[in-house]
Simulated scan of single mutants.
Amino acid sequence: MFQRWRAVGVLAAALFVVNVVARLVIKFAYPDDDTAAGRVSLVMFLVIGLILAATAFRWGADRPAGHWAGDLAVAVVAALALTVFVGPLLVGENPFEGGAGLFFAQIWLYLASTAAGVLVGYLTLTALGRDYRSRQLKRYAELKATKPRKVVRR
């Protein structure tokens, strides 16, 4: 059980660190350039999506979808809360500085990038036939095919 929650915590921390690095790059490298800041944010969302795609690909092969989906949801919600509330404070900004529109846009973009990453990872795994359910069905079919036929006496 501890291993399961440790993995969730490490994933949430990794997602938060990606956001902090992007915020620091924007603050120190591009303080007044909105175009570059937008590009760095786009790269941050892509990296977050790739991390979650790789995680969904890895966890989906070992566990049923209900187990790893819940773990990913907890990690994403924890990372989102840290990103929205703590991330701006680390670079000297107010989380609500841009107003409600920017605050909620940040949440929706984060959720969209995480959902896209998880879908890409899991759909790739399923298309390759390496997900937990596909492997389970394959083992069942092999087991049924190798059983000897029962002889019926009349």
Score class of each variant (00 low, 15 high):
Gly101Ile: 11
Ala13Glu: 02
Val21Gly: 01
Ala56Leu: 04
Leu128Pro: 02
Val84Cys: 05
Tyr132Gln: 02
Ile51Cys: 05
Trp59Thr: 12
Ala12Arg: 01
Tyr140Val: 12
Ala81Trp: 13
Glu97Gly: 10
Val91Glu: 02
Gly60Pro: 01
Arg23His: 11
Thr35Cys: 00
Gly129Asp: 06
Asp33Ser: 13
Gly87Asn: 06
Arg6Gln: 04
Phe103Val: 11
Leu24Lys: 04
Arg6Pro: 00
Leu111Cys: 15
Val76Ala: 14
Phe85Pro: 03
Phe2Pro: 00
Phe96Thr: 03
Thr55His: 04
Met44His: 03
Gly99Ser: 12
Leu119Gly: 02
Leu109Asp: 06
Ala115Asn: 00
Val152Leu: 11
Arg139Val: 15
Leu52Asn: 08
Ser113Gly: 10
Arg139Asn: 11
Leu15Pro: 04
Pro148Ile: 15
Ala145Ile: 05
Leu125Gln: 01
Ala65Tyr: 14
Ala78Asp: 02
Val17Gln: 04
Phe45Glu: 07
Ala14His: 06
Ala75Glu: 02
Leu52Ile: 03
Val17Met: 09
Pro64Thr: 10
Ser113Gln: 06
Leu15Ser: 06
Ala105Trp: 11
Gly38Tyr: 08
Val118Cys: 15
Arg39Lys: 07
Asn19Met: 08
Ala61Arg: 13
Leu123Ala: 04
Ala127Arg: 06
Glu142Tyr: 07
Leu11Phe: 03
Ser134His: 13
Tyr110Lys: 06
Gly98Pro: 02
Val20Ser: 02
Trp108Met: 13
Leu125Ile: 07
Val118Tyr: 14
Gly87Ile: 12
Lys144Ala: 12
Ala141Arg: 13
Val8Ser: 08
Arg39Gln: 12
Arg4Ala: 05
Leu46Tyr: 01
Ala7His: 09
Val120Lys: 02
Val84Ser: 07
Trp59Phe: 15
Asp62Val: 12
Gly92Asp: 03
Glu93Leu: 14
Ala116Thr: 15
Arg154Tyr: 11
Gly70Arg: 03
Phe57Cys: 08
Tyr122Asp: 04
Leu15Glu: 03
Val152Thr: 06
Pro64Asn: 09
Lys27Gln: 08
Leu89Ile: 13
Thr35Asp: 10
Ala112Met: 09
Glu93Ile: 05
Leu24Asp: 00
Ser113His: 14
Val120Leu: 15
Val21Ala: 08
Asp131Trp: 07
Arg4Lys: 14
Gly66Trp: 12
Val151His: 00
Val25Gly: 00
Arg39Cys: 09
Ala53Trp: 05
Val151Phe: 03
Tyr140Ile: 15
Glu142Val: 08
Tyr110Gly: 12
